[in-house]
Computed example of a mutant assay.
Amino acid sequence: MMVESFRSFVVDKSEGSFTSGIKQLKMNQLPEGDVLVKVAWSGVNYKDGLASIPNGRIIESYPMIPGIDLAGRVIHSNDPQFKAGDEVIVASADLGVSYFGGFSEYAKVPAEWLIPLPEGLTLREAMILGTAGFTAAMSVQRLEDNGLAPSSGKVLVTGATGGVGSTAVAMLAKRGYEVVAGTGKATEQDYLKQLGAVEIVAREELLQSNKRPLAKAKWAGAVDPVGGEILSYLLSTVSFGGSIALSGLTAGANFSTTVFPFILRGVNLLGIDTAHISNEYRREVWKRLATDLKPESLLEEIGSAEVTLDELPQALETILKGGVRGRILVNLGG
């Protein structure tokens, strides 16, 4: 049954003013799109936090419904690939940035962005993973494509209590890797060990590097959603032929290095961009998220925090302050 109006979290910006909050919208206010989805779940990402503030520099046009993730059921489709009742996922693409996103009870999206829910995942589990889990899985995929294997040695995950970090720790541990978790949260050691980390390294230790272009080689590879000077440390300490999968900038966009890690140790710096990849590749990574990379019993531990649409503004504020452990889910009717 089609509703006349629905609730969404909307941000808007015009000369000298910025607003954000829950609004009642009508169906004709949604953008053009092939498929109408009744959203069941979304997730809170750092990118969503940036979208919720006036100087986040992430939104391409206003007004906008943020939310780069959604999972729900098809209500109506103009594309023969999908029919009413199909369970689907949209994660990343241009959702919530240049196209109305997942913080809404209904969404209308291009068919090419939709991923059929893979067998082995529920809609809720898909959003516990979301773009953060997809980013972690893509990082593991790229590292393995470049030669990383469980026998290679220790793998460091930075920002290990965040969405990407938590899921990366759990995925790598499931695959049999010796995972070291880097974190600035000393109180979260039990959580990280539960996810599968064999060792915890304080953020301060990663930052107190002696700033030499090359230091003692420690890591066979690294998953880095943090960036900044942490990346400088990683480049100087990754082993010969090792790789770093870089996906974020929570510690800053700038870092310092020299050519030496690349020409004397053959270090690979792998950029992880989840938005501009083929749908075929996206579906393959989601298949792995439903099978060999699914953290199984740890999913509920990673995604234990849940908010309503009304509670969303506080969650967005929290993620910008670095106060999130694991994933925050947005329940839109799940």
Rank of each mutant, 00 (worst) to 15 (best):
A197D: 03
T274I: 13
A173S: 15
S20T: 00
Y46R: 11
K23N: 02
L312S: 09
V198G: 13
G182F: 01
Y46N: 07
E229Q: 15
A181Q: 04
I59G: 10
D94W: 07
W286T: 12
T318E: 14
P118A: 08
E112D: 15
F262K: 10
V226H: 02
E280V: 13
L329E: 06
V169G: 03
S278P: 04
A40L: 10
P66R: 06
G252S: 04
Y191L: 11
L329V: 05
G334T: 03
S239Y: 00
S247T: 04
L121R: 08
G85R: 13
E178R: 12
R327C: 06
E32W: 00
M27C: 04
F100L: 14
G56E: 08
E178P: 00
P225S: 04
I115F: 05
T308I: 05
N331K: 11
E188T: 00
L332D: 07
R282M: 11
K174V: 02
A136W: 09
L332A: 08
F82H: 09
A51F: 04
I244Y: 03
E178T: 14
G163A: 10
P54H: 04
F6H: 07
N331Y: 01
D12F: 01
A71M: 10
Y46Q: 08
F103P: 04
S17H: 10
D145T: 11
F134D: 05
I128D: 02
P116Y: 04
L123Y: 02
A136M: 08
S77D: 09
A160I: 05
P110G: 09
V226G: 06
S166W: 08
L320P: 03
S92D: 15
G196Q: 10
S243L: 11
R327T: 03
L289N: 11
K108Q: 15
I230V: 15
L148D: 12
E178M: 06
G72H: 05
V164S: 12
T237Q: 13
A253H: 12
V223Y: 03
Q29L: 01
S14I: 04
V226I: 13
G49S: 03
E301R: 13
G271K: 09
L156F: 05
L70D: 06
A160D: 06
D12R: 05
L249A: 14
N331A: 07
S104Q: 12
A202M: 05
V97D: 03
Q81I: 01
G184D: 03
D86N: 15
G163N: 11
L270F: 01
I128K: 04
N210V: 02
A93D: 12
T161S: 15
T122C: 07
V198W: 00
M127V: 09
E105T: 07
P110K: 11
V330S: 06
S256N: 14
E125V: 01
P80S: 15
T258R: 09
S247R: 06
S20G: 05
Y99C: 02
V169C: 09
N55S: 15
D79Y: 03
T158Q: 11
E229A: 14
S166R: 12
A222R: 03
G323W: 00
L30V: 06
F6P: 07
K108A: 05
L332F: 09
E205C: 00
Q189S: 15
N254D: 13
T187N: 14
D310V: 03
K218C: 12
D34T: 11
A84W: 01
